[in-house]
Nucleic acid binder design. Structure first.
Length: 275
DNA sequence: TGCCAGGATGATG
DNA sequence: CATCATCATGGC
């Protein structure tokens, strides 16, 4: 599936067809985006900072090269996938239908695998504002400076080499030792990301779960958001609540093949409607 | 089996 | 203003 876009000066625009970039980066799957102002959002991924501006008709990526757009942002926002067809399918279910209709345009973000693993370790028994704070401090402490007071997400190697004392200023609590264990196992190759990327879900899960602090939920989140495996199904506390209340017999058949996407819609919808 | 680690943030009373 | 739960996990 090719992606239609319009290049004008230094900006690249794509249509809003099944695509809400602002919602996608702020529905609980990524933690490195900030709202600047009127429909303008800035964030960092794959060592690149970017601002996008969103209108009713389009999303405009500001000051981006065609190369970065094709290699980073199309995969990141999963723009090559046919969400129209997927959402049509999800609409046949009563609750998923409401979620898709009420919050259209959520994409599963394909983030850096290491960032996803690390972020979801930090997310355990935590709330989103604090998760963002801890990750901000982690990047400022150990990431590469990108200018403008912004930093990349630090590599596993850098974190492993820095040791647990370097993580004290993050105020991550008991999660700090899990971050170190993850960094060491990833840096040494004991947990092999290249292998996970081409492995079936169960094998990827078994590999990730070797890391202390990575259980079922963190493993599935990593597979979904870090490895782009849209069938991974991260059953967290919210989804357990949803399942118990709405789907006592499990998700309907219509979601097979896109379980992760279905869950992200449900997660956001249920969360918004229960506050 | 059930609790705790450690602690900031937002919701609730 | 006090109390409580929060995108869990491993160890005891």
């Amino acid at each position: 599936m090719t992606v239609d876009y319009i290049k004008k000066h230094e900006n690249i625009s794509v249509a809003r067809e099944c695509f809400d970039a602002a919602l996608s980066v702020d529905c609980g799957q990524s933690f490195r985006w900030k709202t600047l102002g009127e429909n303008e959002v800035r964030g960092i991924a794959f060592g690149k900072a970017i601002t996008f501006r969103q209108s009713d008709e389009s999303v405009s990526f500001l000051g981006v090269s065609e190369e970065d757009f094709n290699e980073i942002w199309i995969p990141y926002f999963d723009l090559g996938r046919d969400y129209a067809a997927i959402c049509e399918r999800l609409k046949t279910d009563p609750y998923l239908g409401k979620a898709v209709t009420e919050f259209p345009g959520i994409r599963i973000l394909k983030q850096e695998p290491w960032e996803a693993v690390c972020s979801f370790i930090i997310s355990q028994n935590n709330n989103i504002p604090r998760i963002k704070g801890i990750i901000d401090r982690l990047c400022a402490a150990l990431g590469e400076p990108l200018g403008n007071g912004e930093f990349s997400f630090p590599s596993a190697e850098k974190i492993a080499a820095s040791g647990i004392e370097a993580l004290a200023p993050l105020r991550a609590g008991f999660r700090a030792k899990y971050i170190i264990d993850a960094a060491e196992k990833v840096a040494s190759g004991e947990v092999d990301f290249a292998k996970i990327a081409v492995s079936p879900l169960d094998e990827g899960r078994d590999e990730l779960i070797k890391i202390k602090g990575v259980g079922e939920k963190v493993a599935q989140c990593s597979l979904l958001y870090g490895f782009g495996k849209v069938d991974a199904f991260p059953v967290d506390v919210w989804v357990k609540r949803i399942m118990a209340e709405l789907y006592p017999d499990g998700l309907p058949e219509c979601t097979n093949g896109v379980r992760g996407i279905a869950q992200q819609y449900l997660f956001h919808w249920y969360r918004m409607n229960s506050k």
